[in-house]
Simulated assay, not measured.
Amino acid sequence: MSGNPVMVELDREISKTPAGYPTMPGYEPGRPGMQDAGSSRFDPHATAHRPQETAPGTAPMDQFEDAYRAPAADAVNTGRMTYDDVIVKTGSMFALVLLGAVVAWFGIRMSPSLAVPLVFGGMIASLILAMVNIFSKTIRPGLIAAYAVAEGLMLGAFSLLFEFLYPGIVLQAVIATFVVIGVALVLFASGKVRYTSRTNRFVLIGLLSVLGYNLVNMVLVWTGAITTPFGLGSITVLGIPLGVIVGGLAIVIGTYSLIGDFDVAKRGVEAGVPAVFAWRVAFGITVTAVWIYVEVLRLLAILRSAAGD
Rank of each mutant, 00 (worst) to 15 (best):
T199Y: 13
G284V: 00
A307G: 13
S2R: 01
D85R: 00
S111A: 08
I175D: 06
P167R: 09
L98C: 09
T228V: 06
V246G: 04
L303H: 11
V287F: 12
F162G: 02
I235P: 05
K137P: 05
G33L: 01
T199K: 02
V186P: 08
S136D: 15
A250C: 12
L118V: 13
G268H: 02
Y147C: 05
M1D: 03
R304M: 14
M24S: 13
F230D: 04
G212C: 05
L114S: 06
G247Y: 14
M61R: 03
L242C: 06
T288I: 01
V294K: 00
A265I: 07
A37I: 14
L118G: 10
G247K: 08
A173G: 10
V290H: 04
I253Y: 15
G308F: 14
R267G: 11
H45F: 13
V97M: 12
R41D: 14
E53H: 15
K137S: 12
P51K: 14
Y147A: 06
T228W: 10
V119H: 08
N4E: 00
L161H: 09
E9D: 15
A72F: 08
A184Y: 00
V179K: 09
G243N: 11
L160A: 01
V180T: 03
T90D: 08
A146G: 14
Y256K: 00
I240N: 08
A55E: 15
E163P: 02
M61G: 02
V269T: 15
L211G: 12
A176T: 12
L143P: 04
A176W: 11
